[in-house]
Design a protein around this nucleic acid. Sequence first.
DNA 1: TCGTGTCTGTACGCCTCCGTACATAAAAAT
DNA 2: ATTTTTATGTACGGAGGCGTACAGACACGA
Lengths: 241, 241
Amino acid sequence: MTIVSDPRQNHLLDALLNSEYDRLFPNLEFIKLTLGQVLYESGEQLNHVYFPTTSIISLLYVMENGASAEIAIVGNEGILGISLFMGGETTPSRAVVQSAGFGYRLKANLLKAEFNRAGPVQRLLLRYTQALITQMAQTAVCNRHHTVEQQLCRWLLLSLDRLASNQLAMTQELIANMLGVRREGVTEAARKLQKAGLIQYTRGKITVIDRLNLELRSCECYGVVKLEFDRLLPTLHGIAR
Amino acid sequence: MTIVSDPRQNHLLDALLNSEYDRLFPNLEFIKLTLGQVLYESGEQLNHVYFPTTSIISLLYVMENGASAEIAIVGNEGILGISLFMGGETTPSRAVVQSAGFGYRLKANLLKAEFNRAGPVQRLLLRYTQALITQMAQTAVCNRHHTVEQQLCRWLLLSLDRLASNQLAMTQELIANMLGVRREGVTEAARKLQKAGLIQYTRGKITVIDRLNLELRSCECYGVVKLEFDRLLPTLHGIAR
DNA sequence: TCGTGTCTGTACGCCTCCGTACATAAAAAT
DNA sequence: ATTTTTATGTACGGAGGCGTACAGACACGA
């Protein structure tokens, strides 16, 4: 993997006007994000916001008994740390690096200052937040009604959309933690998908071969979320593809 | 039920400064909300926002096959229609009156104008939105990990918190729709709770007798959401109780 | 008062997923 | 090259929830 260091790889940063971008650029800190790294702990004060470029962050809720469930994922389409400008300063969830890569971070007070200008940046961040809300809502629906296999398809597609390649570096154990199911359940579902020729995997590497059929096997949740992101953040998407 | 017509019964309106309240008051329209009434249809343009006072609104996602799942509920602690100021104008979910009662509504453009003043009202609305996000996230977790009985307890408690009385006018069929489970599952769980002396019900009327033990039977999700609402909107709660 | 519609109770087979246990295989370490 | 660690495959009993079917009970209107 070549390290291309450009903040504009993040779609939100890319959507900024030049004047805004120039104002923030000197304060953007390039950082490497390693698999499993915890960026926010539940209830903890947030010191930075993160703009992933080639990495993916997972928002997890960890229950009292240790079981977990993914609430949403954040990649190069978004920003991690919305509770800073929403006014809560913190959230009862954990943020974990789900896919290693790079990103930029910005000091909390600088982002808040930018948000409080109440200009285009604020509107952009709020629209992104609404898209994130849709993702969370759809996760709730999906958890209620769909099978592990369908959810795995949805999860693979959402992750894929946030990366440049068609390959993910993830063990089934980790995926199970995200989805909040048993590791064996993921193994079973992945085996079926491989047998059907949609994906291919070996020990922590998953390659999506037949994306179209993966979408067909997925539940409607993936499409709903994707449509909503495209609707709310059209410019970004136009540039991204 | 006596009709007490005071916008300040809604905690968000109650938290406004007098100057802000006086500005909005002439535009607040008192309305009656009947059980089952659909305030927003999925994807539809929003013309008003709603401030429930004695009613409860349910945010539902309805799937292609007709199955549904509740995303969040909105009562006198909040506002219905956040997507208006978040910039999306609409959401892929439906808003249904879950508990009949009253409320106030405000024309969409007036709310947006107020929000765009970027003052205390904006900050209040954003904090509320974050609390709502927590509720959605926790719904996702709950759907993943908890039993119907636990979810019923959580649901009863969340609803109760948004009403003055300890009685709900709801059939088990409707509750099942909200939770996204079978009606029989709700019957079974409700029967157990009644046998344990926590609730009492007859044909569409549910009375909570032993609230404390209901909280003990509920999953942690109720507490997490409640704590977060109290944390983010403390003034409101202080006044409300 | 009687009927009719609505709400609640109960039952049965089935499927999915869970908890647990252990086997195999690939990678990493020595 | 051999051992150790980590990742994946498979199996089995059990629990919870689903789809379906139908019976009883209450409420309201004619």
